[in-house]
Amino acid sequence: MAKGKRKVPGLNGSSMADISFIMLIFFLVTTSMDTDRGLHVRLPNPPEEQELQDPPKIRKRNSLIVNVNMNNQILVTQGEKQAVEVEISELRTIAKEFIANPEDKVDYPEKHAVELPAPFGVQMVTDKHVISLQTDRATNYDTYFQVENELYGAYNELRDELARKTFGRPFVQCTEDQQMACRQYYKCMISEAEPRTYNQH
């Protein structure tokens, strides 16, 4: 016969906390918050009728035309020079040289005195340069993206160099005002022409 109620031995729950801690950490690590990264671009305003009819005139020396064809080959035409086919890896150097024009060459973009925010004051910058990116409808998106990436990379590197020289620290560590000033020194001027289908005519 049972001798009344039997006592259930108490369960030791002290390790429960550890177990749930491990689970908590597991979930914290695995569920990525879906951090979305990307290349930020600003599209131009919608085209107006008048603009389409007579596009704004750009002096030859101020223009760098990057053409990506349907076979994903990159053709660069700078000013009056002959068009050359380049690799993606070369594009950044070409763009940097073009944007900054450090030696003030005649066939590179002209420089103008422009009032910039402190501490720059009035500086000679290539404010009229335009990088025109032309693609075919059959161009691969990946190639286009890599080209964009290199072009924006050129601006970012120039700004970074400028920030290091002027403020003594990398661009990303500068204050908002300093970043703004650097941005205006090297203003981003990438224009994307409407795509063409070359193989149709």
């Binding site: 599209l43 409808r137 691969n140 286009y144 994307e192 409407e194």
Partner: peptide, 21 residues
Amino acid sequence: HMGIITDVKMELRKAWALSVV
């Protein structure tokens, strides 16, 4: 291909959604 992307971009411009990532 870029065709579809440029079409989308053109529509975005017309819709004044100019900040694109």
